[in-house]
Computed example of a mutant assay.
Amino acid sequence: MSLHKIAVIGGDGIGPEVVEAGVEVLEALAAVEPGLAFDFKRFDWGSDYYRRNGRMMPQDGLEQIKGFDAIYFGSVGDPNLPDDVTLWGLRLAICQGFDQYANVRPTRLLPGLTGPLRPDLGKQIDWVIVRENSEGEYAGVGGRAHRGLPIEVGIDVAVFTRAGIERIARFACELALSRPRKLLTVVTKSNAQRHGMVLWDEVVRGVLRDYPGLSVDWMLVDAMTQRMVNKPGSIDTVLATNLHADILSDLAAALGGSLGIGSTSNIDPSRSRPSMFEPIHGSAFDITGKGVANPLGSFWTASLMLEHLGEQAAARRLMVAIELVTDRAEYLSPDLGGAASTAEVTSAVIAAVSGVNSPSS
C-alpha cells in the first residue's frame, strides 16, 4: 500500500473550504483505488494565525513540513492585511524555502464548459504553462528609502541567473517532449528589458540545442496574450518568467472558463523537499463562508499532486470524475454560470469517483 503523508494548509478565505472538499474527494478516491492511502495533517497557518502570533506561520514552519510527501495548499491573502505580508510570510516562504522553482499550470476547456472564446477556438485550448518560480521579478531584491518624504523611493530588482534560467528551461523542454505535440513557446520581453531578459534568451537558446526533437517558437509577452485569444490551437507548452507566466496563466484559466478551475504545482524537481499544490483562484473573501466556492480547481490540483506522487491511475480517475461533473449543468457552480454549491459539486465528484450514482449515468 502507498501511504502518502500530506500537509494540508487551508490558508485564508475560501482556501480551507475548497481544500477540505479536496481532502474529502481524495479520501473517497483512496476507498476505491487499490493500494492508495493518505495521512493528512492540517496546519492552521495564514492570516488568522498572523493575528494571533504576528507571523503567517511558525518560525520553524518549514522544518515542521519538510518530511511530508506533498503540501496541499488553499490560498493566502486577507483584505485587512498587506498583501506583501501575507504572500511573503506563507506561500512564497514555502516556495522559496523549499526551492520549488518550477510552477506548472495546465489549462483545458473541460467538457460542458464554454469560456469566453468562440466554441471553435475554446475547444482548441490544451496548454501547460511552465513558470520560473524562484527569481525574476519576485526575487524579493530591492527596498524603500526616505519613507514618507517627497523623495521616497521604492525599488524592485528583477533577478535572472544563468543557473536559474537553465534549470527551468530544461524542465520545460522535458515536459514539452513528454507531450504529443512536442511544441514549446518561449515567452520573452528582451526588446525592452535589455539585460535580464536578454540573458534569458541567450541561456534558453543554449539549452534548446540539447533538445533537437522539439519544435520551438518565441513570442513577446504582449503578443502572447493576443495569440492565446486568437490562435489558441497554436500553443502547447509555454515557458515564461515568474511575472510573465503569473499573468499569462490567469488569462489561461479565464479562457478555460473560470479562475475557479485553475490548478497549479510548485515543484522541487530534485524531490529532496516536498512540492506544493494549490488552486490559483486566491482567497476570494467576497464569497467566503457562503458555500458557493468552486472546488474544481482544488480537485484538479489534487490530480496534479497524485501524478507527482506516482499515482497515475488515481490521477486519471479523478480527472475523469471532474469531467463527468462539468458536463452536467446542474453541477456547475455560480462562477461557471450554474447554481450548485461547494458541497453539491463535491458530492457529485465523489459519486463519480466512486462509480455510485455517477453523473454519467
Rank of each mutant, 00 (worst) to 15 (best):
I155R: 14
I155Q: 14
D156G: 15
V157N: 05
A158V: 12
A158D: 14
V159Q: 13
V159A: 13
V159E: 08
F160W: 12
T161V: 07
R162L: 09
R162S: 11
G164D: 08
G164A: 10
I165M: 02
E166T: 13
E166R: 13
E166A: 15
R167T: 04
I168H: 07
I168W: 10
A169C: 06
A169E: 07
A169V: 11
R170V: 15
R170K: 15
R170H: 15
R170D: 14
F171D: 06
F171G: 06
F171L: 10
A172Y: 10
C173Q: 09
C173S: 11
L175P: 06
L175K: 14
L175V: 12
L177S: 08
L177E: 12
L177K: 11
R179K: 09
R179Y: 06
R179C: 08
R179A: 06
R179W: 04
P180R: 10
R181Q: 15
R181L: 13
K182R: 13
K182I: 07
K182L: 04
K182P: 03
L183I: 08
L183E: 12
L184G: 03
T185I: 13
V186L: 09
V187H: 05
V187W: 09
V187R: 08
T188S: 14
T188K: 11
T188L: 05
K189C: 01
K189P: 03
S190F: 04
N191C: 04
N191I: 08
N191Y: 05
A192S: 14
Q193R: 11
R194S: 08
R194K: 15
H195Q: 12
H195I: 11
H195N: 13
H195C: 03
G196W: 01
G196H: 05
M197A: 10
M197W: 07
M197C: 09
M197R: 03
L199G: 06
L199F: 04
L199I: 07
W200T: 05
W200C: 02
E202T: 09
V203H: 00
V203Q: 01
V204Q: 01
R205V: 00
R205M: 02
R205L: 03
G206S: 09
G206C: 01
G206R: 14
V207Q: 01
V207K: 01
V207N: 00
L208E: 00
R209D: 03
R209E: 10
D210M: 00
D210G: 04
Y211M: 00
Y211E: 00
Y211Q: 00
